[in-house]
Amino acid sequence: ILEEAISVVMSGKMSVSKAQSIYGIPHSTLEYKVKERLGTLK
C-alpha cells in the first residue's frame, strides 16, 4: 500500500494530502518517502 501511494504521488496523479486520506498513511511518512525517492531529503 505504501509503495502504491508513493508511486501515485510521484507520478503527480495525487497530492500527498489526498493520498494520505485514501491510503490511510500518515502525511509525514508519505512526504518523507517521496522526498527520499526524489533525492531531496535533507
Rank of each mutant, 00 (worst) to 15 (best):
K13F: 03
L2F: 14
E4N: 02
L38V: 11
M14K: 05
R37Q: 08
G24S: 08
K18R: 10
Q20G: 15
Y32P: 10
K42D: 15
V34P: 03
E31F: 02
I22D: 09
S11W: 01
A19D: 05
S17R: 12
L41Y: 13
L2D: 05
I22M: 12
L30S: 04
G39T: 11
V8P: 00
G12M: 01
I25L: 08
K13S: 09
G12C: 01
I6Y: 09
L30G: 03
E31Q: 07
M10H: 02
M14G: 02
S15G: 07
E4G: 03
I1W: 08
R37K: 10
E36H: 03
L38E: 15
R37T: 08
I22Y: 15
K33L: 11
I25P: 04
P26K: 10
S7K: 12
E3Y: 03
V9M: 02
S17V: 10
G39R: 10
S11M: 10
G24D: 11
T29D: 12
Q20T: 13
M14H: 03
L38G: 13
A5H: 00
I1C: 12
V9H: 01
T29M: 13
S28T: 13
G24V: 01
Y23C: 02
S28D: 13
T40V: 11
K18D: 13
R37V: 01
V16E: 07
P26T: 05
V34S: 06
V8A: 15
S11Q: 15
Q20K: 09
S7P: 00
E31V: 08
Q20V: 12
S7L: 09
V16Y: 11
M14N: 02
S7R: 12
E3N: 07
G12F: 00
H27T: 13
P26R: 06
I25E: 04
V9L: 04
I6W: 00
I22G: 05
M10Q: 07
P26V: 00
A19G: 03
L41N: 09
K33C: 13
V8N: 09
G39K: 09
E31H: 05
S21E: 15
K18N: 10
S17K: 13
S21N: 10
S15P: 08
L41A: 14
R37C: 05
A19W: 01
M14T: 06
G39S: 12
K13I: 05
L30K: 03
S7C: 08
T40E: 15
S11L: 08
I1T: 14
H27L: 13
P26G: 07
V16S: 10
V9G: 02
E3I: 02
S21Q: 14
E4I: 04
S17G: 13
V9W: 01
G39P: 07
S11K: 09
Y23E: 07
M10G: 03
V8E: 15
I22E: 13
G12T: 01
V34D: 06
G12S: 02
K33A: 14
T29Q: 12
K35H: 09
S21D: 13
V9Q: 00
S7E: 12
K33I: 07
Y23R: 02
I1F: 11
A19N: 01
S21R: 12
V9I: 13
K18G: 07
S11R: 07
K18V: 08
L38S: 12
R37N: 11
S11Y: 04
E3W: 02
V16K: 08
E3T: 01
S17C: 08
V34Q: 05
K18F: 01
G39M: 11
V9F: 00
T40G: 13
V34L: 11
Q20A: 15
P26E: 12
Q20C: 10
T40F: 04
I22V: 14
K13N: 11
S15D: 14
S15L: 00
I22Q: 14
Y32K: 15
K35A: 12
S28I: 10
H27G: 13
S17L: 11
A5L: 02
E4W: 00
Y32I: 12
I6G: 04
M14V: 07
S17E: 15
E4Q: 06
E4R: 05
E31S: 09
S21Y: 06
S15A: 05
Q20Y: 08
T40M: 12
E36I: 05
V8K: 15
K13T: 09
K42A: 15
I22P: 04
V9P: 01
Y23F: 10
V9A: 00
T29V: 14
S15E: 08
V8D: 10
K33Y: 15
M10C: 08
L2W: 07
V16F: 08
L30A: 04
E36R: 04
L41I: 11
T40W: 08
S15M: 01
K33F: 13
Y32M: 15
Y23H: 05
L2H: 01
M14Q: 05
K42T: 14
S21W: 04
I25A: 03
L2Q: 06
S17F: 04
K35N: 11
H27K: 15
I25M: 03
T40S: 13
K33V: 09
Y32F: 10
I1L: 13
M10A: 09
G12D: 06
Y32S: 15
K18T: 12
T29F: 05
Y23W: 02
K33M: 09
K35V: 05
V9R: 02
L30T: 02
E4P: 00
L2P: 07
I25K: 03
P26I: 00
V16D: 04
A5T: 02
S21M: 11
I6L: 11
A5G: 03
E31D: 06
L30I: 10
L41P: 09
S7T: 12
G12L: 00
S28P: 10
E36P: 02
I25D: 02
E36K: 04
G12R: 04
Q20D: 00
T40P: 10
T40H: 13
V8I: 08
I1N: 14
I6S: 04
Y32C: 14
T40D: 11
E36Y: 02
L38F: 08
S11H: 10
T29I: 15
L2C: 05
L38I: 06
A19I: 00
S17Y: 12
M14C: 08
S17N: 11
E3H: 02
G24F: 01
V9K: 01
A19E: 01
E4V: 05
S7F: 04
R37L: 01
I22L: 12
E31G: 05
Y32L: 14
Y23T: 06
Y32Q: 15
K13A: 09
L30W: 01
Y23D: 08
V16I: 12
H27E: 15
S17T: 12
G12H: 07
E36W: 00
E4K: 08
Y32D: 13
A5S: 03
H27C: 13
A19H: 03
E36Q: 11
A5E: 05
V16T: 09
H27I: 14
E3D: 08
K33H: 14
I1V: 13
S7G: 11
V16P: 09
S17I: 15
E4T: 08
T40Y: 07
K35C: 07
M10T: 10
P26L: 00
L30E: 05
K35W: 05
S11C: 08
I6P: 00
I1A: 12
V16A: 12
V34W: 03
G24C: 07
R37S: 07
A19P: 00
L41H: 10
L30H: 03
L38N: 11
S11I: 06
T40I: 08
H27R: 14
T29K: 10
G24N: 10
V9N: 04
S17M: 12
H27F: 08
K42G: 15
G39H: 09
V34M: 09
G12A: 03
M14A: 06
K42C: 12
E36M: 04
T29G: 04
G24E: 07
L2T: 06
G24A: 06
K42H: 12
V16W: 02
R37P: 04
K35E: 11
S17A: 15
L38W: 07
I6M: 04
K13G: 08
M14P: 02
K13H: 08
E31L: 08
A5P: 03
E3P: 00
H27Y: 09
T29H: 10
H27A: 15
E36C: 04
L2N: 05
S21K: 13
I1Q: 12
Q20P: 01
K35Q: 14
L41E: 15
L30V: 05
A19V: 05
S28V: 07
Y32A: 15
I22H: 14
S21V: 11
S28M: 08
G12Q: 02
M14I: 08
T29C: 06
E31T: 10
Y23M: 04
G24Y: 01
I6D: 03
K18W: 01
G12I: 00
S7M: 08
E3M: 02
K42L: 08
L38K: 13
Q20M: 07
M14R: 02
M10N: 01
K18Q: 15
E4H: 00
L41W: 10
S28R: 12
I22W: 07
M14S: 05
K13D: 09
